[in-house]
């Protein structure tokens, strides 16, 4: 569950102050699949970065599962990201020198799992995205869609409370994009995974429970999806 209250984010370049987010108020209940849409520059990725604690807001509050994240030290934010949040980046963000399974294992070792358990959970996560058989392949040996699915498996292996996805299909062809969205849908449907996804593709956004539209740093609209759409 995420509560965003009066959230603003400004970027200052010399005398120029750019207001990217202007008083965002948003509530994401546990188990919801939320899509954030908007034109380029609307502030959708910036909102995701604030909600996922990758960046600090200029003002406002972000409360995740009752915890006010404004009180976090850098180390606490890092630990919170490690243990409670998962990330899927637009360009997969896999380490090129690690195999698929090693990319998934790294955060698990950091969480404190032993090597055997971390490996087992990684294979399980890769299996969930249909890539267990490619676990020994390095990213360069995988297609874009497969890399993104490995990225998703890395995120879900951490068993996050919330999964954040920043335009996960942007670099993929339609077939691969569809496969990634199906994986996320499956996670949401089968595990009740809370997902916040930024996308500019309406077709994929409509797979979510709810869509919010951003315009000039403000929420300009909201659209709930009926069960029939799924």
């Amino acid at each position: 569950m995420i509560e965003v209250t009066d959230l603003t984010k400004n970027y200052t370049t010399g005398p120029v102050v750019t207001k990217v987010l202007q008083g965002i108020n948003l509530f994401v209940p546990s188990g919801e699949f939320l899509s954030i849409m908007g034109k380029s520059g609307a502030g959708k990725s910036t909102l995701l970065y604030q909600m996922s604690l990758l960046d600090l807001p200029s003002s406002g509050r972000i409360i995740i599962d009752g915890v006010n994240t404004a009180d976090f030290s850098d180390k606490a934010r890092m630990n919170f990201r490690l243990n409670r949040l998962g990330y899927v980046f637009q360009d997969y963000a896999l380490l090129p020198e690690l195999s698929a399974v090693e990319n998934v294992i790294v955060p698990l070792l950091m969480q404190g799992l032993n090597k055997v358990d971390a490996y087992a959970r990684s294979i399980e996560a890769l299996d969930a995205v249909g890539l267990a058989h490619r676990h020994d392949n390095r990213p360069s040996q995988l297609s874009g869609g497969e890399q993104q699915r490995v990225s998703i498996s890395r995120a879900i292996a951490q068993k996050p409370d919330i999964l954040f996805a920043d335009e996960p299909t942007a670099n993929l062809d339609s077939t691969s994009g569809q496969a990634v969205i199906e994986v996320m849908n499956k996670l949401h449907a089968e595990r009740g995974q809370t997902i916040v996804m930024v996308t500019h593709e309406l077709e994929y956004a409509r797979e979510a429970d709810r869509i919010i539209y951003l315009e000039d740093g403000q929420i300009s609209g909201e659209e709930k999806q009926s069960a029939a759409n799924h």
């Binding site: 630990n79 490690l82 998962g86 380490l95 890395r154």
Partner: peptide, 16 residues
């Protein structure tokens, strides 16, 4: 640097 940022982003400690 990008990968370092991603590692930090997913919670890997800077010391590691």
């Amino acid at each position: 640097r990008k990968y370092i940022g991603i590692l930090k982003g997913i919670g890997i400690s800077p010391l590691a």
